[in-house]
Design a protein around this nucleic acid. Sequence first.
DNA 1: AAAATACACAACCGCGCGAGC
DNA 2: CGCTCGCGCGGTTGTGTATTT
Length: 172
Amino acid sequence: MRTPSGEMSTSLKKGTWSLEEDQKLVSYINRYGIWNWSLMPKYAGLSRSGKSCRLRWMNYLKPNIKRGNFSKEEEEIILHSRVHLGNRWSAIATRLPGRSDNEIKNHWHTHLKKRGTYNLVHQTTNPNDIKNTQQRVNHVTDNIATQPSEAFEDDSSSSSSSITPSIEQELA
DNA sequence: AAAATACACAACCGCGCGAGC
DNA sequence: CGCTCGCGCGGTTGTGTATTT
């Protein structure tokens, strides 16, 4: 195994994030952007690994992240996408703006897995709903089949590019 | 009311890939 | 061309909460 250079074994904190840690990470990224996950936590005053920070940001702190219940339509998209894409959660996540791959994966394991197959999602809906839903799902599936997976624009990339080494100097 | 169990969500770990040197 | 590094992904585990006994 490799040992990431930026995050050596300096007693990194693990477990649930506190509000204070969230605030530190958010305010740092808002100010300086994302330039290097391995080094950022140090400058942000966090005793966390870069991986941990990245996960926290991607899944909960990033703007536009949707929290809370999945809609029926979102579940349908997940179920149907999984049939076509398998367990490629990140690819499935591109079909659901505002949802992270981790959240979708969790939702699958806790809710949707039990249903077994895509078809069972319809078990409580009336015939008309089923028809309409099937049309929507077919539309989504067609898109999946035709366009690889660039689908939704991701604004995270815009912030990660330009801000790099000068920050390190500024903060050192 | 307390203990046991099930459930849902948050976070970690290991690995592979691509870019840069 | 091989090596190192950082990032992202998917699987798995940990933890808190709700429900049942």
